[in-house]
Simulated assay, not measured.
Amino acid sequence: MMDFDLNLLRVLVSLDETRNVTRAAQQLGMSQSGFSTALNRLRLQFEDTLFVRTSKGMEPTPRAREMVGTARAVLGQVRTGILADPQFDPATTQTEFRLVMADVAEIVFLPRLIRHLAVHAPHASVRCFPLPSSQLEAAMEAGEADLAMGYFPDLSKQVFFHQRLYMHTFACVMRADHPFAQTRLSLKDFESLDHALVSSPARSTDLVDRFIERKGIHRHVVLRTPHYMSLAAVIAESELVATVPLAAGMSVARSGAIRLVRPPFDPPRFAVQQHWHRLYRHDTRNQWLRAQVSQLFNEQSDEWRAVEQSMYGGETIRRRAAPSRISSPGGQRPAQRRSVGANKV
C-alpha cells in the first residue's frame, strides 16, 4: 500500500457525495472514462466493488463506507495543513520576535519598534541579544534569531537575504562644556585629545576604527568599553572624546550634557540593513516582521539624515548613497514579493 495514489481518495469521496459517476467526474474535472478507470483501480487495489449500482444510484459497500470517513479526514488535513496558505495574525499572536543587534542598534530601533508592535501586535514580545559573527549564522539557521539588524558585513551572501534600510555615518561626542565643544575640530585638535573607544559586537565600530587607522590619524586611547551607555556617562564627566555612530551620538546628546561635534574628516558611511536566513524567506511570521521593520526604518523616515546633511553637506551624502534593494543569496535579485497585508506577505 506504500505506492497508493492519494488522488484516488478524491474519487472515493466524490462518488460517495454524488452517488453518480457522471456527476462525480464533472465535480473533479475528469472525463467519465478517466473517472471509471480510477474507480477500477480502487476496486482492484482493495479487492472490493466499493460502489454498486442500485435504484438509488451508486451505493457504497460496507468497506467503502469505512474508507470514506477516513478519506475525508485525510483530504481535509491536506487542504488545511499543506495546500492552504499559511496564516499569521499579528493581532492575536503571542510570539516572541528574536532580534540580533548590538546595544547601539537597540538605541536606534527599539523605541519606535516597541511602540509600533504595541498597536499592531499587542500580545507579542521582543527579545534582543548580541551575537559574535561566529555564532550568528548558526543561530539564524536554527530559527533562534529571526532578524539581524544593523551592520553585519560578515554574514554569508550565499544563505542570507539583506535589505538596506538606510545609510548612516559617524560623529564625535564630547562633554557639552568641553574646551573644544564650541569650535570646529582640526586634525591636530583631534589627535591631541584623549579618546574613548567602544569595543562592542557592533561591526560599525570596527569600520570607523579601520578608517581612522588607514588615514594615518593618531588617537591617544584612554578608555575602551563594550557599552555605549557607560560611554555616555564617562564622556559627560571627563575630557574624553569618542567617535560613534551618528544615531548613538544624537541619542546621548539629547540630555544636554554631551555635544555632537563634526570630526576633522568625512567619516565612512555604511548600510544599516536587516538580514534573514533563506530558510525563512517565505515564512509568514518572518515576512510580517520584515515588512514592519522596512516600513519603520527607511531613507524617508531616517530621523538622522537632516543632522548628517547639516554636518557633512547634502551633496556628499547624495553622491555616496546607493539605491535601496533586497540582496538575495548568490547575488541574484529575488522574485517579486507579494503585497503586505495583515495576514499575508
Rank of each mutant, 00 (worst) to 15 (best):
154 D>M: 15
155 L>N: 13
155 L>A: 11
155 L>K: 04
156 S>D: 00
158 Q>S: 14
158 Q>H: 13
160 F>Q: 10
163 Q>C: 05
164 R>G: 13
165 L>Y: 10
165 L>G: 07
166 Y>F: 14
168 H>I: 06
170 F>K: 07
170 F>C: 11
172 C>R: 06
174 M>Q: 02
175 R>W: 03
177 D>T: 05
179 P>N: 08
181 A>S: 10
189 D>Y: 00
190 F>W: 09
192 S>P: 02
193 L>T: 08
194 D>F: 14
196 A>W: 08
196 A>G: 10
197 L>M: 11
197 L>W: 10
200 S>E: 10
201 P>I: 05
202 A>E: 08
202 A>Q: 11
202 A>T: 07
205 T>C: 11
205 T>Q: 14
210 R>G: 09
216 G>A: 13
218 H>N: 12
218 H>S: 08
220 H>T: 13
221 V>Q: 00
224 R>V: 03
225 T>A: 03
226 P>E: 12
227 H>F: 03
228 Y>V: 00
229 M>P: 06
230 S>Y: 04
232 A>K: 09
234 V>M: 12
239 E>T: 08
239 E>C: 02
243 T>H: 05
249 G>L: 04
250 M>H: 12
250 M>I: 11
257 A>T: 05
258 I>W: 09
259 R>Q: 12
259 R>M: 01
260 L>Q: 05
261 V>Y: 04
265 F>D: 01
266 D>W: 07
267 P>H: 04
271 A>Y: 04
273 Q>S: 10
286 N>L: 12
287 Q>P: 09
287 Q>A: 08
288 W>M: 01
292 Q>L: 04
295 Q>D: 02
